[in-house]
Amino acid sequence: MSDSFLIEYLPILIFFVIAGGAAIAAVAMSYMVGQQNPDPEKNSQYECGFEAFAESRSKFDVKFYLVAILFIIFDLEIAFLFPWAIVLGDIGMFGFWSMVLFLGILTVGFVYEWKKGALDWE
C-alpha cells in the first residue's frame, strides 16, 4: 500500500488530534488553574460519614445482561445489512430475497423473544 492511501485518512487523524487535544486540555486546565489543597480526609472515600463498608458493586438482576446480549445479536444482524445495502442494485432479486430470508429467520427469533416476555421490563 502506498502512502497516498493513508492521506485519505488525514481528516480522521485531524479529528482524533482535536478530540484528544480537547480532552487533555480539559483535564490539564482544571489541574493547573484550580486550587489544590489535598488532605487525607478530603481524599478518602466518603459514605455518609462512615468508612466504606464494602465495594460499590452489587448483584444486578440478570435481565440487564439479557438486554445487552440481545442487543449484540441484533447489532450483528445490522452489520450484515451494510454491504447488502451498497450492492443491492447489482445482486438483483435473488440478493434481495436472500436478505429477506435471513431477516425472516431472525424475525422468528424476535417473535419468540417478544412473546416469551424477554422484552418486558417488569
Partner: peptide, 9 residues
C-alpha cells in the same frame, strides 16, 4: 422455526 413459534404460543 415452526416449533419455536408453536412452543412459545
Amino acid at each position: 422455526l415452526v416449533f419455536l413459534i408453536a412452543g412459545v404460543f
